[in-house]
Write a protein that binds this DNA or RNA. Structure first.
Length: 301
DNA sequence: CGCCAGGGCTCAG
DNA sequence: CTGAGCCATGGC
């Protein structure tokens, strides 16, 4: 076992691991105390979170475990995890600069004050794509369960510290899984979407490389080559995997916020409403603002 | 029973 | 391009 720690004080703007990993951005982390998404217990702020990474590329998964305690990000893993954590949790993002770019109206101030240190994640493309295809009309907790079921059923296992972990399945494996097998895991009508999108990735007919590097609007369009991906899911994958921090996914919570706080941004179509709220949220880092608002509103209700 | 959950697909107009 | 209907599943 390797281990290490990163001083939170070295990170511009700090970090809030719990808010980052329990805000419905990444569905590949698990709280080791089994209380993911439950109300903050006394130890909630320093719980261990674990994930198995790398399995979706066909190699043996590596396990990474992290917790935030006493001003440190402590980790234990099957490999050196310093740089991996910096990448996955975007620890190099300059949060004060990002907050400067986000307007400080009533809602945004409340949301960023409540979860200061929450960071937008940077997940690998395929697991992120599948997660958000599964997210359609689903609660966050169930999206998480569905990804766990996919990994348990089709992912490579790895034992670490006496515990068994499952990496995310490869595109080939999910493409080979029949629609019926996926439905059996509770994916419902999303099952054929996942299967067909996995096929596209496995065959190379549509991949992340077709999207990476495009201007935001073109990238959102290109994402819809995948099955089960419309404007909203496209925005999620663009932000949480491909680094488009200006993307503002219009989900039910944000639409409610628009109705209550920004009615002038309601323009009828997704594209125009998204454009308006992106400007309202300061443009460049509007997705960061959206992520804070989503987590804030969802936890407040 | 009904409603809702981080929507997308298909088919009419 | 826009809108309705449909799509599974589980919690409340």
């Amino acid at each position: 076992m390797e281990s290490g720690s990163i001083p939170v004080g070295d990170l511009s703007g700090g970090v809030d691991v719990q808010a980052t990993l329990e805000s419905g951005q990444s569905f590949r982390w698990h709280r080791e105390d089994g209380r993911m998404y439950e109300a903050d217990g006394p130890s909630g702020g320093s719980a261990w979170y674990a994930t198995a990474v790398g399995g979706h590329t066909g190699g043996d998964p590596e396990v990474v475990r992290v917790r935030q305690r006493d001003g440190l990000l402590e980790w234990e893993a099957t490999t050196d995890a310093d740089r991996l954590l910096v990448e996955r949790l975007r620890l190099d993002d300059d949060l004060p600069a990002i907050f400067d770019a986000i307007p400080d109206d009533e809602l945004l101030s409340a949301a960023t004050d409540a979860y200061r240190g929450l960071r937008v994640v940077n997940d690998p493309f395929f697991p992120c794509l599948v997660s958000f295809i599964c997210s359609a009309q689903m609660r966050v907790e169930r999206i998480h369960e569905m990804q766990a079921a996919l990994a348990r059923e089709f992912g490579e296992t790895v034992v670490f510290d006496g515990e068994t972990y499952h990496g995310f399945p490869t595109p080939e494996r999910l493409a080979r899984a029949g629609e019926d097998e996926l439905r059996a895991l509770g994916l419902g009508y999303r099952a054929p979407y996942v299967q067909r999108s996995a096929e596209l990735v496995a065959s190379g007919e549509a991949t992340a490389d077709d999207v990476r590097g495009l201007d935001y609007e073109d990238a959102r369009e290109a994402m819809q080559a995948f099955v089960g991906v419309g404007d909203k899911v496209a925005d999620c994958v663009l932000m949480f995997s491909l680094g488009y921090l200006e993307a503002v996914p219009l989900d039910t919570w944000i639409r409610t916020a628009i109705g209550e706080y920004y009615p002038h941004c309601e323009r009828g179509s997704y594209a125009e409403t998204s454009d308006a709220i992106r400007a309202e949220f300061g443009g460049e880092y509007a997705g960061y603002a959206q992520t804070y608002v989503f987590h804030y509103l969802r936890n407040r209700a």
